[in-house]
């Protein structure tokens, strides 16, 4: 069941991005450069951006490290679970387990260093032109919201607390949370690109 839902979500997200970029007139070869700029702007907090700023570098480092780890986690879980329809095992499991630990670390760092810049402002609520910035922030907080059950479910699975049915429930919680997290992250990335266009 999860397999089909995940496939529908992935196809749906791809369709969403395709139509939205088309509507906004963003060419595919522009996406990468806009995304890169969007990252720098969002992470760097444009008003106080200083390229020699240690925290900026740290934020950027955490961001890219998290992106790489998310990519690894998605590949090692989606290939067996969504594409092959089996549980994660073997090399996929080994990479997934190791990557998950580092993901928790880098994601925590990222949250600590970027949460404040994503707090809601007056302008986000009142100014209709800042609507996209509001969505970007909301999607950011959704990422954090969905990451909590994704991580907590795994922690609970590591202890002999739940039986087979409980573990199956936790497993489902993890999988669906991650799926929602991916939706939120995609939307967040989309608004980063869109907002960047506006700034330019």
């Amino acid at each position: 069941m999860y397999r089909y839902i995940a496939l529908i979500v992935i196809i749906g997200l791809s369709y969403f991005l395709y139509t939205k970029f088309k509507q906004k007139g963003i060419l595919w070869n522009e996406v990468y450069s806009r995304f890169m700029d969007g990252v720098k702007i969002s992470i760097g907090n444009i008003k106080s951006r200083n390229k020699s700023d240690f925290l900026y570098k740290l934020r950027l480092g955490f961001y890219w490290f998290t992106i790489i780890l998310v990519f690894l986690l998605i590949v090692t879980s989606f290939i067996p679970v969504v594409i092959l329809g089996i549980h994660i095992s073997g090399l996929f499991l080994l990479i997934h387990v190791i990557a998950a630990l580092f993901f928790c670390f880098s994601f925590t760092g990222l949250v600590l260093l970027t949460a404040h810049s994503n707090k809601l402002l007056d302008s986000d609520l009142i100014n209709q032109e800042n609507k996209n910035k509001l969505y970007e922030k909301l999607s950011y907080w959704c990422i954090i919201l969905f990451s909590i059950p994704a991580i907590v479910s795994i922690i609970l699975m590591l202890y002999p607390i739940f039986g087979s049915e409980g573990i199956e429930f936790l497993n489902d919680t993890h999988r669906y949370s991650v799926l929602l997290l991916i939706v939120a992250a995609t939307i967040n990335t989309y608004y980063m690109i869109i907002n960047n266009k506006k700034i330019n």
Binding site: A100, C104, I144, I148, V152, I154
Partner: peptide, 30 residues
Amino acid sequence: MKIMIIIFALIIIFVFVIYVSKGLFFITER
């Protein structure tokens, strides 16, 4: 690994709760 993940999870939850509370406060205030 278990201990580290628990600590990370607690930090994330803590940050989330603080800012969501702040956000709620902000919305009600505004």
